[in-house]
Write a protein that binds this DNA or RNA. Structure first.
Lengths: 165, 165
DNA sequence: CATAACCATTGCAGTATGCAACATTTTCGT
DNA sequence: ACGAAAATGTTGCATACTGCAATGGTTATG
């Protein structure tokens, strides 16, 4: 027992320290995300943007699928689609093969909204990263990959609350 | 100009790579946050939880202050407080000194809700961190600090969309 | 072919949100 | 000290988000 408390083995202090550092970094990342969202919040609400993001990454979908990915009730998704169709950000048409399903997809304008936010977010993070000492940069890449590896693949629905994905 | 921007000198690839790694890690962290929130979403909505988090970190506040921290209209904050008072998660009383201000603060139950989510989130992140190779752990701590340093202090209101803080 | 499953849709209820208007209280300037 | 101005909480109104339950049409299944 080198530096443990009670019977917690070595390295536990590291875990605590790293967890705190992780939470701090999270706060910053969420702030970046929020700022990137602010740019389009006059055009779409946050729930609407989530819907656009899902369509952007998953491609066209029928209503129940979309609702499932967003983890909302189909009726909620339907009415959101209604509004987005009115805003000309998504397209809603009858499915070619099935007479009951509908096909929902992004318009060019809708894709532009998503791209705008995505680009801004990436730019902002890159700007922060560029301000880091180059030595730390290389270390961080490997370490972050190990972290993501340890975390596994998060379910899609859980990754969208802020329009990530 | 040692490694300037003009023709993108050495090190730019690093930035791109690290930005991607950062975004991936973000997705995971947001997923963790969403899962920790799920535990209490029967008791409070996400906006309500945000309000509790702000009260938890800033202490008792009057209405306009609270609304400012949440970045919502005072009328919105007022009605949310109304509902949270009905749920016995916050307390609303007249301010001792000023005859027009009101003093809003957490009840024990409200504090418990925040603690529950905070604890769960920290536990989940610690679990992931514990699965990382110890070598990567030590490297990640330093690198994350450099990242947070480069990012500066995010404004409070921007850090709360998912109940961080 | 009849029944079941699936899908989109609508009605209803509660929450969140911003804006504008108000009444009351405090502060400020003269 | 008094009146104007600012601050604060509050309410009315309109829109968006949300889930649950019921409905009608379409497809699959037996």
């Amino acid at each position: 027992m080198i530096e443990g408390s009670a019977d917690a083995g070595p390295g536990v202090g590291d875990v605590d320290e790293l967890t705190s550092a992780m939470l701090t970094a999270s706060r910053l990342l969420v702030a970046v995300a929020a700022r990137s969202l602010a740019a389009v919040e006059d055009a779409v609400t946050l729930p609407q943007f989530r819907l656009l993001v899902v369509l952007s990454s998953q491609g066209p979908a029928k209503l129940v699928t979309l609702a499932g990915l967003l983890d909302v009730n189909p009726s909620t998704a339907l009415r959101m689609v209604d509004r987005l169709v009115a805003s000309k950000l998504v397209d809603r048409r009858a499915s070619p093969d099935s007479g009951r399903e509908i096909r929902i997809e992004l318009t060019a304008a809708g894709r532009a909204v998503v791209d705008q936010v995505t680009t801004r977010r990436r730019t902002d993070i890159a700007a922060i990263v560029a301000r880091m000492p180059p030595g730390e940069r290389r270390a961080l890449v490997a370490a972050l990959r190990a972290f993501a590896e340890a975390g596994g693949e998060p379910p899609v629905s859980a990754a969208v609350p802020l329009g990530w994905e």
